[in-house]
Amino acid sequence: MAERAPALQAQDKLAFLLSLVPYLMDRGSVSIAEAAAHFKVPVAQIKRAVELIAVSGIPGETTQYQHGDLFDIAWDDFEQNGVIVLTNMVAIDDSPRFSAREAAAMIAGLQYLSSLPENADRAAIATLMSKLSRGASSAPSQVAVENAPTNDLLALVERAVEAGVQLEFDYAGVRGQVERRRVDPLRVESLDADWYLRGYDHLREAVRTFRLDRIAAPAVSDQPISFTASDVVLPEKLFEGSPDDVVVTVEIDTAASSFLADYAPDDIEGAGTSRTRLHLRVNQFGSLARLISGLPGRPVVIAPASARDAVSDWVSRASHRYGEDELFSVDGGLD
């Protein structure tokens, strides 16, 4: 297996060469800098690729890679002016097709984005998907993502951004209190089925992350924004740790421990054969109680006692909504 690892990198490099040649042919003459910007790669990568292309070709009649069997470039332009001009072309005429998996990745990606207002024109998206299928060298892999209806809230966010005004909405924080928030929208992010708005919050006077499904009564305001996406460097992680975070020890079935991966457990220890103990950093116990009570794999908060009590209080109050003798066994669900 070890010898396969470098080959993966070479595959990427090959895909790059096969993609770069038709682009250069099409452009006729293009600066190294522009090609690098177009492919979003470093200038050095373009240079190396062009140098390789310029000495590559086919064995030809003589099987000796004679001059006419090779690509050639205008070397003076390349070396002195940083401009790429292919002066001899070999074998390649056009861009390569997508692989079955590449087409599947793009199609599933489009399906995943079906809630975006840009994707509201379902006929146009269907055309685009069929182009990807036809542009693949074999039938795309059977990977798909559920179609979602257009998200009206995202349309509102886009309108606010276009108009340069704040978005306002009711937001129920995890502590349960609802407040009217006014926000400069900066970025919309998602993780699987969960969508988030990141923006500058005028109430908190800081950048905050909001779950779209917790936003209620949204409206485009008439207040101008203070910040745009280019003014603010957003932290990479959706939720940043804060100094008053508390470290909580949770025990859970080992098979289910990956559900806690987002909470960046800093160290993991076994607890018996099938259980694992994790240390999570949490900001407050309200969200911890929600998290713990919704996870599979029988999670139990071990310490500190205050965190245990918070979960205990949450689930005790919940169970009081039900009668004493309601327990009975059931079966079913997905296979």
């Binding site: 993966l8 595959q11 990427d12 895909a15 790059f16 096969l18 993609s19 770069l20 038709p22 682009y23 099409d26 452009r27 177009h38 492919f39 979003k40 861009s95 390569p96 097709r97 997508f98 692989s99 998996r101 590449e102 087409a103 599947a104 990745a105 793009m106 599933a108 990606g109 995943y112 984005l113 975006l116 990977v143 993502v145 966010v157 886009e158 951004v161 276009e162 929208p185 900066l186 970025r187 919309v188 992010e189 998602s190 993780l191 699987d192 996406a229």
Partner: peptide, 30 residues
């Protein structure tokens, strides 16, 4: 599918087309 989508993007860019920069920054993730 990160490798596959990266290579699909290369092939897409091979066609030379450019995309307008969206006003709202999106960062979707599966």
């Amino acid at each position: 599918l990160s490798g596959e989508s990266r290579r699909a993007l290369l092939k897409l860019r091979s066609l030379g087309g450019t995309a307008p920069v969206p006003e709202l920054d999106y960062a979707p993730r599966i």
